[in-house]
Design a protein around this nucleic acid. Sequence first.
DNA 1: CTGTTAGCGCCTTCAC
DNA 2: GTGAAGGCGCTAACAG
Lengths: 375, 375
Amino acid sequence: MRQSIKTGTDRVTIAQVAREAGVSKTSVSRYLGGEFDALSVRLRDQIGKTIARLGYQPSQMARGLKGGRTRLIGMLVADILNPYSVAVLHGAEAACQKHGYTLMLCNTGNDEAREKQSLAALHSYSVEGLLFNTQGRNVTPLRELGQAAFPVVLLDRHVEGCDFDLVGLDNVKAAQLGTRHLLAQGYTDIALVVQPLYGVSSRQGRQAGFLQAMSERPDCHGETLEVDLEQPGHVATVLREFFLRRAAAGSQGRVAILAGNGMVSLQIALALQSMKLRFPDDLGLLCFDELAWSPLVGSGISTIEQPTYEIGFTAIERLLVRIQGERSVRMELLLDGRLIHRGSSASVAEHPERARVAGISEKIHTTNTLQYATA
Amino acid sequence: MRQSIKTGTDRVTIAQVAREAGVSKTSVSRYLGGEFDALSVRLRDQIGKTIARLGYQPSQMARGLKGGRTRLIGMLVADILNPYSVAVLHGAEAACQKHGYTLMLCNTGNDEAREKQSLAALHSYSVEGLLFNTQGRNVTPLRELGQAAFPVVLLDRHVEGCDFDLVGLDNVKAAQLGTRHLLAQGYTDIALVVQPLYGVSSRQGRQAGFLQAMSERPDCHGETLEVDLEQPGHVATVLREFFLRRAAAGSQGRVAILAGNGMVSLQIALALQSMKLRFPDDLGLLCFDELAWSPLVGSGISTIEQPTYEIGFTAIERLLVRIQGERSVRMELLLDGRLIHRGSSASVAEHPERARVAGISEKIHTTNTLQYATA
DNA sequence: CTGTTAGCGCCTTCAC
DNA sequence: GTGAAGGCGCTAACAG
């Protein structure tokens, strides 16, 4: 019994198998292709045994060369440090393995140049399809892919001017769910905190759901706060301004924050910590994306959980359908979020002092200097 | 100017470029290979322009076929849900991009069968080298790689009977650093909590460092607690038994826990929460692996940060050196950890009641029934 | 300096 | 049923 893994030079080839089995390369190829009906039992046996004995493994490179299947799928991730991306990657990788595909991963780090470069790299390996989760900018190369009817599935956000399939969360619905939850818990002054909306459809969807749910309650106040996560201390500043604005408006309401995604959640939690604000005593909090540590901070952070694994898995399966030649119109697969209720969005009903605008602004003034020092 | 991205059939080939430029394929190939000294300026120009005009991109598959460089690196990850793995992946991917390589990612999910299968898949694509972070079991296929002098770099843990290069943390040193920190802060009864040591060198290294540091203080007590993260409630049970054991031993000391990695940290934090134990009031806590939420829980969790990005980046660069044919003896690159001091390992000196064995066991008894109910 | 030739490992006609 | 021949896109001798 010889080794089952060969390197470069001494790699077992189809020719070797053919020779040792005393058959032609064609027959071996047929065996590999599963064309058993075109093969006598004797040959089939012989080939099977020889393959096993030699530990032969066909080279995907050679197979792919013939314009055929490379069984390769490329995945472009906007930010591998984003837990959402990793969770989706998890599902995608599993689906690939299930179907005998292998994933080529590129992290674009939210950088257009690297995105373009990665796209080129993946193309040079003749990937059969692409999973795309990235900024909506610089869409020209993507458009070309679209014109060429190249199989692409978008994750989370769609790209202007491209009619690719999309798999993601039903953002509008999820945001409504979350907003209504906060309202039902007695919160009246709610801020949706998101990264810049510009061009990112998922963020816009969440805002739409938020605004819609808020509009059902004219007695309540909702606003969207855009934050720049790159800029240290920006989240804290924006939050403070919001609180002060509500105080200045003379609101007697109950304040809550709806965090637009996991990255924002983290920065908000850090900002609130630096401002010495606690939930739900000082304000309510609900975050998009269930994270490992959600149960741990304070009395637990309420979240809207995305079915990330399913998103990744489904996206790959949809992509495979396209790869198999399906040419139907663009399809959008939107999965539902799930609300996980914890302490941070506890009801305000029987707690007259909880999450009051007045309370927050008082605390803020107290810790004002400290805050600027740490920011 | 034609499109720069082509799909399968209408792909631009080297032959087309050669024809349109009025030269031979060889010359174009030389151009691609950067052999400019063997090319007249006129040809060089002509080829360059034609390539740009046609948007030609060489097929890596075809290049790789010729027994040459595929510029592909395979990465096997034990568990993509482990933040450590992702952080290392981040660095590895960056290094690959820097050097024009592409990463093929496989998640083995700690499963031997999938590990073997992934190895086969990567091999079938003729990856030039392998980054390996996985369980030490089922090493036979790995040994074969070793015998074939196939370039492999191990991450974090080495594999018995294989003399591959290794990049990871200096576990002994880091554990000593952490343990001495806890001792210096006044903790005397310390438990190192790790996943099963069996066969995992990094865990063994951490234990070695821990024991060594503890041996410098015969007046203190240290023990290693192995936990099974798959088994719900196991961490809580093991911790409780430890506390009770210390109490039964009549210890008047100060208790602290040293968590063996990020996954363990999370489970410990959850277990302590379920037991209603707080740090540093009820006990001290120091965790391997700096996580996004480390500053957020309680008064912040002290950690031993690993240079994960560097580990991934360095591992790839080491692998590339091997790929370029370096045949020197096995090399181990151990990077230093960094202690991040937060509230959870606060000094016990001027707090007579803090982290007392007696205090903990009392609390445990109180919450006994509740604990079992939630576990 | 440049081009011709011969494969790399596989699949796919096309004959037998 | 089976096999021989040709070609996928590229690189690597070998000639001029």
